[in-house]
Design a binder for these strands. Structure first.
Lengths: 221, 221
DNA sequence: ACTTTTAAGGTACTTTAGTCTCTAATATTA
DNA sequence: TAATATTAGAGACTAAAGTACCTTAAAAGT
């Protein structure tokens, strides 16, 4: 959305008409440039000056909007996942917790095998590894697309009376993201494919979630 | 020539005899100083020069032994956990997987409530948050004390014929560390106490591990 | 139209991780 | 004891994140 509306007519200094960008327009351009960079360069090799230069603006402007390099990169990334969430239509609602989770994992699988996102694991491992644990946990864990979606599934399940969340722990919403993160980072051969994802869902996540299902819903499997 | 280098010996401590430390002796002093610093200062506020100065040595010496700030801090931390492992005697071997895990969690609980380690959560959250995801996963995940110990439990259980690891996934060794990490970082009220730990073990970890127990061992709980 | 306020552009500065290179003390070997 | 090899000490240097401050374009208000 709001794509490349205005081009930088004259790339160099000889620009006759300046059209100084402001507000959302400038912000969108900066995030697009950041995303563009992170698709080619790993996190620690990106400099704020590179981002500024590519967006034809300047470091001060960046720091006026975001507090740090991690902030701007994560913000850029979030535009992408939000975009992705759009493509994937809205939150699944199959009528059962396990069904919703399977749909989500199908999406992830599609995402991982699709042309455009084929290198997303490499991206996570190589390009985003420089992000700090604090930035990850403060700005990404539990705020990320995946964890939010899992939380929603449980809210829906709770409304349906499918689960009893009396002894539920917040950690559990984040578990899929954590386990996938660990698998992405720590797997030497980077083949996170459908069987592996199926296994993670069936043999790791579902055994944790199943005890929270009310008795009558537990017969599955 | 003509530099004023020799005034340095009287500068810091009136040490008449120089005794230039070398090898392991120097290394131990540096790690002790690092640990000392990290007990008072958060990771990103520690500078390599601070470490060097406190150890009465110099940055070059640090970089000759370790590749980065993360390296040296994690190395210092590892001396501590190794030390802790000593205090805790060796790896538990109660004769059952669940027993071993419970012993481990008891240790963690003791550790968390003991005077000296009371602020270890704060330490993790505030002092080590600056470590990058890459450093965490490359140098800590699956290499840490906890994950290694869990792996050992499973090896013992496998030798006893208690578990069947045919469909086991490496992620599972790291799961306790991951879940605790998430709980430590993402919990607003930082009370990771015995009930919470019990809950994490009983309601999150054991449900994942139990399916790998052979049928006859599964009656527990 | 004119003034005020807001936000972008630009540049120099500070700090710290990490590198480089030279000198000096100590260990090793002859 | 003397030559040689190691490794510590010292300090200058580079690069990049983040800050400070000032100038300039363009809104918004009068």
């Amino acid at each position: 959305m709001a794509n490349t509306s205005h081009n930088q007519q004259s790339a160099s200094k000889a620009s006759t008409t300046q059209h100084r960008r402001r507000g959302k327009e400038l912000e969108a351009d900066i995030l697009a440039s950041t995303l563009n960079l992170i698709e080619q360069t790993k996190y620690e090799e990106i400099t704020m000056d590179m981002i500024a230069k590519r967006a034809h603006t300047n470091k001060s402007v960046l720091y006026r909007r975001w507090d740090s390099k991690a902030d701007i990169v994560l913000a850029a990334l979030r535009t992408q996942t939000t975009d992705l969430a759009m493509k994937m239509r809205q939150t699944p609602n199959t009528g059962s917790l396990e069904g919703d989770l399977r749909t989500l994992f199908d999406w992830i699988c599609t995402l991982l095998t699709s042309m455009h996102y084929a290198n997303i694991i490499g991206l996570m491992r190589e390009r985003l590894g420089g992000i700090s644990m604090r930035d990850y946990f403060d700005k990404f864990a539990r705020k990320n697309f995946l964890s939010q979606m899992v939380r929603t599934f449980f809210e829906h399940a709770s409304e349906r009376g499918e689960v009893d969340l009396t002894h539920f722990d917040e950690v559990l919403y984040d578990l899929p993201a954590l386990v996938l993160m660990d698998a992405f980072y720590a797997t030497d051969d980077t083949t996170i494919d459908r069987p592996r994802l199926d296994h993670i869902l069936s043999d790791i996540l579902m055994p944790v979630y199943r005890p929270f299902l009310k008795a009558e819903d537990r017969e599955a499997r």
